[in-house]
Simulated assay, not measured.
Amino acid sequence: MLWFCLREAPSPQVVISTTPKPLPHVKRLVERGRRPGSTVVLTTGRTEDNRANLSPAALAELDSEYGGTRLGRQELDGVLLEDVEGALWKQWMFEVEGFRIARTAVPPLDRLVVAVDPAVTTTDSADLTAFTVAGRSYPLEQMYGGDYLPALLTEVDPTVPCRVVHATRGKSARAAPVAMLYEQSRISHAGPPRTFAVLEEQMTTYVGASEAEEKSPDLLNSCVWALTDLFLDASAPGAPAGAQDRRLHGRR
């Protein structure tokens, strides 16, 4: 529509200043700007380049929120984050309105789960023992290392409800329905981007290759288990019989 406003100018020119979010129209402009002889000229800059003109307090807050994260490369460094071919999660899923909320804005939860993807070794190269805490806010009611967790929880507090689940499908097949929840904007991350930096990096780069080709995504695994239990597993506690599809209705 912008071009309709410029059609009477003898030599129309437009300056667009924006954070390079991976949206289709932004990608098209960037692709045009990379072609030799294109009429689109790309000029990029980092927040750091403009430090002399910016508030030190604001810069400190931005660095605290975004520094060292994948999203920070976009917001602070002006980098267009390209999607990894074959990855189930796309960067735009983290950009939709309402995806990031403050922890103080989390609504009352009717059910809360903690999913654990346990490490099987203690070497320097071992995976993390990954924990994901996930909650549901609308009213609806054999991995290695799996044996020791119930015993450990019982020893600490025998009243804590615990359920051991075993994988019957590959990681990519388990993750696909959870990625769809993100695609439908049904999931929010509560807290600053830094909190979820490693998880979101795993989400946007994991393509489901074999263990020999791709490191097991520990945080992603625990997140998939948590959200599957909350939204997709009709046998989970609190899930009404035959209500699996209906449980997907709602924001979170």
Rank of each mutant, 00 (worst) to 15 (best):
Y148L: 12
R163K: 01
M180V: 13
L199K: 05
G146K: 05
Y144V: 04
Q202S: 02
E214I: 13
G208V: 13
L219Q: 09
A190Y: 11
E201M: 12
P192A: 15
P192K: 13
E214Q: 11
T205Q: 00
E200V: 14
Q202E: 13
A175C: 10
R169M: 02
Y206L: 05
M143E: 04
Y144G: 13
F196W: 08
D157A: 08
M203F: 02
A212E: 15
Q142N: 12
T204A: 00
E214G: 03
E200R: 08
G191S: 04
V164D: 09
A167L: 04
G191D: 01
Y182I: 08
A209W: 12
E155V: 11
L153P: 07
A175M: 05
H189W: 09
G145R: 04
Q142F: 04
Y148N: 06
A167D: 06
E211V: 01
M203R: 07
T205I: 03
G208D: 11
T154G: 15
A209K: 08
E201C: 08
Y206E: 05
Y182M: 12
L181M: 15
P177E: 07
M180I: 09
E201S: 13
S188N: 07
S185P: 01
A167K: 00
I187M: 03
T168I: 14
Y206C: 14
T204G: 08
L199T: 10
E213C: 06
L152K: 02
D218N: 00
T205C: 02
E214P: 01
T205P: 00
T205E: 11
P192S: 13
C162P: 08
A190P: 05
C162M: 06
M203Y: 09
T195I: 15
E183D: 14
Q142C: 01
T168R: 03
E214L: 09
V160G: 00
V160I: 15
A176W: 00
L152M: 14
E213D: 12
V165F: 01
T154P: 10
D218W: 08
M180K: 15
E155Q: 14
E200W: 13
A212G: 12
V156I: 15
V160N: 02
M143P: 11
A179W: 01
T195L: 14
R186E: 09
T159Q: 15
C162Y: 02
S188R: 06
E214Y: 03
A173Y: 13
C162W: 00
A209T: 10
A197V: 11
V178A: 06
S216T: 01
E155R: 12
H166Q: 15
I187E: 14
P158Y: 03
S216R: 01
S172N: 13
L181H: 06
L153T: 11
